[in-house]
Amino acid sequence: MKILVGYTHTAGGGDAVRLGVRLARALDATLELVMVLTSERGALVPRDAGYTQHVRTAAESWLAEAAGTVPDDVRVGTHVEQADSAAGGLLSASRRLGTTLIVVGGRERTGSVANSLLHASRVPVAVAPTTAGGAGGGTPAEAPLTRVTAAVGLRPGAEEVMRAAAAAAARTGTDLRVLSLVPLDAKDPAAPEAAATANEHAERVRGFLEAAAPEVAVTDVAVATGRGIEDAVRRAEWQPGDLVVVGSSRLASRGRIFLGSTAGKMLRALPVPLVIVPRETELTFDDEETTA
């Protein structure tokens, strides 16, 4: 298996490489560090072959520097990809290299690159948290994966996320937790009736799981409440070795990912990495690209 890391020579790019290393270790995969050079503006300024070459040289040296930070036990390759847009370049590199997972960096995770990727990729996309936002005082950027958390609601499609998370947990030999986020509008999350709502919700999740995906062995079912999704995420329990799996919005076309609004809100608040999986596709982690 190969994992593509979308690298930029910024703090966010460093976050992506560190997450790539953790995932590569957990999945026994090779890392492919890819830096996309977008074409210079063709509409106003003519391209300059000399400048293009200078940028390429800089990109290669940045990639070499990044590859140097990857520990020796992880195999790593580097590639410069030329494309019209950063997201487009990552997707075409992914197709060409046959990678089955794309990792992008933290700081830019709400930026346009991650945004385009999170609405178009055919392979799962993992988004690294910013290093500064680590949970529980640990160093999540370095810690091995210990638990896969499937974030599900009670809507159709949750069983897909469950199966993907179960596959990831089995493949990485980690625990599987199912987490349901319950926003309580205008209610105090500490109030007794909120706890009752949460318990009731947990029962419904268990019932739903037994009916929808009986074959999946779940270690833990948790419900997190809050004034909104972001607040609920902050109140949930996180470990340094967590990896969150979310599904695509029902707006996604079959076989592609599409970041829904709930997942988008989670992304902004999460202290741990998040993987979004394509819709209606069996997640295999095989070397061949999953096809729709």
Partner: peptide
């Protein structure tokens, strides 16, 4: 350079 794609072809 180890370019995967001829740089100038895009756009």
């Amino acid at each position: 350079g180890g370019l995967s794609k001829k740089g100038l072809s895009a756009g």
